[in-house]
Amino acid sequence: MSKLDNLMQLDGALAAFDFSSSGELQDSKIADGAEIENDVLDMVCHVCVANGAIATMQARGWEKMTQMEGFYPIQGFSLIGFEWTVIVSDSIGVIIKNDKVDYDATYAVLES
């Protein structure tokens, strides 16, 4: 099974996707009945890339200034929305209903 399929097995998963380094949606799986379409996913991917870049800049600056290492490289970013949460690592992500989110299980699949 592909990683996207594995992500869709997570409880509450609404969509799984992967994207290019500049944020364009490359592939997706969307759960039956989920009111999410690929053009929304494409925007979500761009949000993830933008914030991954910001977080990387922050981790770099923080470590340089504080000598407190352990943030860089960024391994994941998560956005908690009003009803659902996006979790991404590298170029793959998943959208999960807020009341079902299991960060540890999701990162385990993303990092597998």
Binding site: I54, Q58, R60, G61, W62
Partner: peptide, 9 residues
């Protein structure tokens, strides 16, 4: 915010 961080770092 990003300029503040650039100044800070």
């Amino acid at each position: 915010g990003n300029a503040d961080q650039l100044a800070m770092f």
